[in-house]
């Protein structure tokens, strides 16, 4: 068990290294000249040379990569060319918005997924099942930028119950959380619909297992059979997909954050790309990929808790 954990953590570090190399190479080596990319075609030769030196482009790329990597190990991700601030500080401020948003969106999508999925599986083949799964299909097909916009119209412009369109910052305390409700809901609907289908499908598989029949024949109440004996092992594929969903949420909701003007990782990602701010793009990509990998690691490690038959080797 211990060696399994160690191997997984080593694998996590290796994957992150591979990703950092891929991102670095894509932005620094592949086509063209990053300095030219930063300053644009019309820039003066003066500016061009200065930016080239600032990016350290006079050195060969393996040296630059190792230098960058060495900085990351010391907690220094470089300086943003556009904001003129340390990349680490910018990322920290963005994560402070994206993390609570992702958590809220994920909790809401679970609140959608479990009741819907369990109800549909319980009434499998009924018209209720068909209606719920039809609803889930629609939820999957509606683009989140459109859903977000409709939510703003209804709850913010119409009913005036929830604010939207900016973020006051955590200096405002807990009430700032209200600004995250609508974007979280826009994110939660398609993800909840996806996970609801997963819960239903997985539950239908375990409901056909012998141990469920045994539990039923022991005379256990149906709710207990469904929620304890069938649901727990059914959670494994749900945790896998849920892990991917949550990891991607943590990586920043680029479209929704931009729609709601939330200063999170997604907005930083778009801003850094539009400004061709290479150190910042690299930092955002690294944090995004790191979050996804970390959540997947946690999901993998949780299987043993869900199904006693799972053994780590």
């Amino acid at each position: 068990m211990g060696s399994y954990f160690l191997r997984r953590i080593l694998w996590f570090v290796l994957t992150l290294l591979a990703i950092s190399l891929a991102v670095f190479l894509a932005l620094n080596v592949l086509p063209g000249d990053p300095a030219r990319l930063v300053v644009g075609i019309e820039a003066s030769p003066d500016l061009y040379t200065r930016v080239r030196a600032e990016l350290g482009l006079d050195r060969p790329w393996p040296v630059r990569y190792l230098h960058w990597l060495g900085g990351i190990v010391r907690g220094d991700l470089g300086r943003s060319l556009h904001y003129r601030q340390p990349v680490g500080a910018l990322l920290g401020a963005a994560v402070a918005v994206t993390f609570p948003l992702a958590l809220l969106a994920f909790l809401l999508s679970l609140l959608i997924a479990f009741p819907l999925g369990i109800l549909a599986a319980r009434r499998w083949g009924s018209s209720l099942d068909a209606a719920l799964m039809g609803l889930a299909q629609v939820g999957l097909a509606v683009p989140e930028f459109w859903l977000g916009f409709v939510l703003v119209l209804a709850f913010s412009a119409g009913l005036r119950v929830l604010p939207a369109g900016w973020f006051p910052g955590w200096g405002a305390g807990l009430p700032a959380l209200r600004y995250l409700v609508l974007p979280a809901l826009a994110l939660a609907v398609p993800r909840g619909a996806y996970l609801a289908r997963m819960v239903r499908g997985s539950l239908l598989t375990t409901l056909g297992e012998a141990y469920v029949a045994v539990a039923r024949s022991k005379g256990l109440p149906e709710a207990r059979v469904l929620l304890v004996h069938a649901l727990r092992p059914a959670l494994i594929p749900v945790v896998t997909s849920g892990g991917l969903v949550f990891g991607r949420l943590l990586a920043g909701a680029i479209v929704v954050e931009n729609l709601f003007y939330l200063p999170g990782l997604g907005r930083l990602a778009l801003a850094s790309v539009l400004a061709r701010d290479i150190p910042l793009v690299e930092g955002v990509a690294l944090v995004a990929a790191g979050s996804i990998l970390a959540v997947n690691l946690l999901a993998d490690l949780s299987y043993g808790l869900l199904d006693p038959r799972v053994r780590y080797r």
């Binding site: 894509a26 990891g247 997604g266 061709r276 793009v281 995004a288 996804i292």
Partner: peptide, 13 residues
């Protein structure tokens, strides 16, 4: 481990 939209953003860069 790359989020889809971020992958697209990197390519656009």
């Amino acid at each position: 481990s790359f989020p889809p939209v971020l992958l697209a953003l990197l390519l656009v860069t």
